[in-house]
Design a protein around this nucleic acid. Structure first.
Lengths: 130, 130
DNA sequence: AATAGTAGTAACCCCAAAGTAACCTATATG
DNA sequence: CATATAGGTTACTTTGGGGTTACTACTATT
């Protein structure tokens, strides 16, 4: 009986990739960090709808997978800064292509609104009060 | 008070993309179809671990999102062929990049084994018996 | 002594997605 | 008359990702 093999050499790596970034929050977090370092509180603020707990687990997983770097400063109150690692940075152009794909293929969707929805005040905490 | 806006114009389209392909099975199915048309039974066979029910829902969703085309022939027993649409084809190069990213960034993972694991006999049904 | 501020944990719950198994349709075949 | 075949559907159960709320540590400020 002749044996043929499926020609999907990339499927498994793809599955791995999806395990790493293919969920509700991680692509957003990676994109937020594409502009530079962000503290936990900012990430929480700029990711509407996410909870502290979930943000923590997502960041931990991204760190475990080597996509982001976590810097902890021994201060009080604590300060933790997150930034993209080399792996994370290498992913950015591909994510941009995926975005362009969606924009081109689904022109009927009002992505412009989403864009506006992510416009959140960068100044928080004490700066907010005045 | 000065207002700054987050520069993540692509995050939303990215979320949309992840809603479409960022789950357990869909990237695999897209890659299986990258070689051409496949019938339901073949897809079931070439996607180890998936159930009929889940395969059906995944295919329906891919069809609803316009990534694949479903052709039904009025025969008995029935025959249904699935293939990639233009949208799906346009996605392929990006998926390949994602795969390459994973291969380059995680050289320690034995993706070769996954490749072998997907080598399933293409001949099924009656052809199997001899 | 109470409060604010950051970055979390711990305990608990919920629901949609996924999994399982049986059943269905129409024909042809033994 | 029973069985096989392809491509499903239906009903039911399970799982785990995500969500909510409360709590913590440590210090400076009021």
């Amino acid at each position: 009986m002749s044996r043929k093999y499926i020609e999907n050499p990339n499927a498994c790596t793809l599955v791995h990739t999806m395990n790493i970034i293919g969920n509700k929050w991680k692509p957003i977090l990676i994109y937020l960090l594409s502009n530079g370092k962000l503290r936990f509180g900012k990430l929480l603020l700029f990711t509407p709808g996410i909870s502290k707990k979930v943000l923590t687990t997502q960041l931990r997983e991204l760190e475990d997978d080597g996509l982001i770097i976590r810097e902890k400063f021994n201060e009080t109150p604590p300060r933790v800064e997150y930034s993209l690692s080399e792996k994370g940075l290498a992913l950015l152009p591909i994510l941009r292509e995926l975005s362009r794909w969606a924009e081109n293929m689904y022109p009927e969707i009002a992505f412009e609104e989403c864009r506006i929805a992510s416009g959140i005040d960068l100044k928080v905490g004490k700066f907010n009060k005045e």
